[in-house]
C-alpha cells in the first residue's frame, strides 16, 4: 500500500421498484365521483356515521359499507395548523394553513388546504367552502379542489362540529 485511501463508509444502492397502485372498490368510487365534481361518502349500516373518503368499511364497527352519500362542498374547520416549514420542491408557498375539515353531513374530517384567508384569523369552528379547479382540469384526484376558503357564516359551536346535517345539494360547481 503506497498511498492511504479513505475508508469506504457507504455505497449508493438505489432501489427502483414499480407498482401499479389500485385504490380499492370504495376509494375508486370516491375518485370517480370526484372526476364528476362530486364529493361522495359512505354510511355505516350499523352506526349510521358517514365517512369520506370511505375505505369500504366502518373502522369503528368493522362492517362493510356500501351506501353512498353525496355531500355538499361546504364544511367546518375542526382544527388546523399553519405550516411554515420550507420543503425543497414544495409547490405550496409557506406559510399556509392545513385544516381538518368536516363536510356538512359527514362525521369525519379530512385534511385540505385553507386559503383566501388571513392565516392569523383562522379558527376552530370556522365555516368554509371548496374552491374547485375549472372542470376541464378535473382528474381522479382530491386536487380537483384547489383549496377551501372561509364562508361568511357564524362559527359552529365546538361540540357540534362533526354532527351537522347535510346543508344543501351536492352539485358539481
Amino acid at each position: 500500500m503506497s498511498t492511504a485511501r479513505p475508508d469506504v463508509t457507504g455505497i449508493e444502492a438505489p432501489v427502483y421498484l414499480h407498482y401499479h397502485f389500485t385504490a380499492g372498490t370504495a376509494p375508486a368510487r370516491f375518485l370517480v365521483r370526484l372526476r364528476e365534481g362530486l364529493l361522495s361518502g359512505q354510511r355505516c349500516p350499523r352506526c349510521a356515521k358517514v365517512y369520506i373518503p370511505a375505505r369500504g368499511s366502518c373502522p369503528a364497527c368493522g362492517v362493510p359499507t356500501t351506501e353512498e352519500v353525496l355531500l355538499p362542498d361546504r364544511g367546518t374547520v375542526q382544527s388546523f395548523t399553519i405550516v411554515h416549514i420550507p420543503i425543497p420542491g414544495n409547490p405550496i408557498e409557506p406559510p399556509y394553513v392545513v385544516a381538518n375539515i368536516v363536510l356538512d353531513g359527514a362525521n369525519i374530517s379530512f385534511i385540505h388546504l385553507l386559503s383566501d384567508c388571513v392565516n392569523e384569523a383562522v379558527r376552530i369552528g370556522q365555516r368554509v367552502e371548496a374552491v374547485w379547479r375549472p372542470p376541464e382540469e378535473w382528474d381522479y384526484a382530491m386536487d380537483n379542489i384547489r383549496h377551501f376558503r372561509p364562508l361568511d357564516e357564524p362559527d359552529v359551536p365546538v361540540e357540534r362540529i362533526g354532527t351537522l346535517p347535510v346543508s344543501g345539494p351536492a352539485v358539481p360547481r
Binding site: F21, A23, P27, F30, L31, P53, Q78, S79, F80, T81, V83, I85, I87, N90, I92, Y96, V98, A99, N100, F110, I111, H112, L113, D139, Y140, A141, M142, D143, I145
Partner: peptide, 17 residues
C-alpha cells in the same frame, strides 16, 4: 395517493391540529 391532497405537511402537520 390520489384520495388525499399532497400538502407536504409531514408528521408535525398531522399532530399540530
Amino acid at each position: 395517493q390520489p384520495f388525499s391532497v399532497h400538502l407536504n405537511a409531514g408528521a408535525g402537520g398531522y399532530f399540530a391540529p
